[in-house]
Design a protein around this nucleic acid. Structure first.
Lengths: 192, 192
DNA sequence: GCAAGACGATAACATTTGTTATCGAATGAG
DNA sequence: CTCATTCGATAACAAATGTTATCGTCTTGC
């Protein structure tokens, strides 16, 4: 059942039995807050079913920063790692089935993983990959129009556009719902 | 003389003598390309004097992504780490005095640093810090107006606004030079 | 020192994006 | 099932931002 998260876990397939007991399966309704902004993150979530968004509070109106779907790992990484208050809120969008692991267990896993050179290398690589991902995300805001960003999103994560309420997508793209609506209708018109 | 880079180097102060020979001091004129987009990065630069920008090629017009000043370390991190073609170009803005280290030496330093737990921890922390930095940079494009981003830049790196040509700053902020000019004159008017 | 080009300010106009309001369809609680 | 609420589309208008062009100043190479 962990097939889904294989490449998101800091250990090798053959060690599953050692660690599987660390994880707890939970079900939560939609709009559940998994981590509140300002709190210190003590858990990491793996999504078996459902979707989640991570958002920032920008004096009152929320700014959606990332979406997560089945097979993804979700946490406020920096809060979790450094024991500092999270700057983001983590919230379910749909009813979710999640696997949860606590900080102590996760830390144990990670530190043991670090003893194995190739696993260590994989973990560090994933940090670099995250960096590259964020860089490109930034860049997209500088060089692309909102319409282009919307098209990119459709291309890269088509499920998101289908499953997720439009106002979350608009805030993710950095525009208003009205403008997103305009973009959609313009694209539909051009398609004909 | 390495005081300037103390916290950017992957080893402890007391090991300087072991490594100092790896670095070469060079002087280059302004507008020198230190790494061309598409090439694989084999060097890391440390700025003793001068400033540098990192930019993306966006079909013809360049998009400045980051500025670096005295004391900063500059490289195309992902290209350097993974031996893949760089997506960015690194270019001097002013005549620069730099310290350069090649990949083989750098790798040696890093792998040795990883044997020392507290240095390893520091290195990994810095990867997380980079992540947080990029996240916040992204976020700024979603939630702030160009004027606010300009004010942030003045606050965080006042030197940049003073030393760096305006068209680079405009592209860094994601706006045109004309618009930056408007923002500046508007701010000047309001100040009076 | 001079000429060519780079740089920054500004204006006029065009386009994009935000704001507010309205409407109908979809959704969810009871 | 029904009513209240949420969600998405659309319109009219306002504000922000881009485009193009012009001008004067400042660099820079020669």
């Amino acid at each position: 059942m962990f097939d889904q998260f294989k490449n998101k876990l800091p250990f090798d397939e053959k060690h599953w039995n050692d660690y599987v007991g660390y994880f707890k399966r939970i079900q939560v309704p939609s709009k559940t807050t998994l981590l509140q902004e300002g709190k210190i993150s003590k858990k990491v979530f793996f999504i078996e079913k459902g979707c989640i968004r991570v958002w920032f509070n920008n004096n009152g109106n929320d700014v959606t920063f990332q979406f997560f779907l089945e097979g993804d790992r979700v946490s406020s990484t920096e809060s979790f790692k450094k024991n500092i208050p999270s700057i983001v809120t983590i919230e379910t969008i749909e009813p979710c089935t999640l696997w949860v692991i606590g900080k102590k267990d996760m830390d144990k896993m990670v530190s043991e993983a670090f003893e194995i050179p190739e696993v260590r290398e994989k973990l560090i690589d994933s940090l670099f990959d995250r960096n590259i991902h964020y860089m490109k995300h930034c860049l997209s805001f500088i060089k692309d129009t909102p319409q282009q960003r919307y098209l990119n999103l459709i291309q890269e994560k088509p499920q998101i556009v289908q499953r997720i309420p439009q106002h979350y997508i608009a805030s993710y793209l950095g525009i208003t719902t009205v403008h997103l609506s305009r973009i959609k209708s313009k694209l539909a018109r051009e398609k004909k």
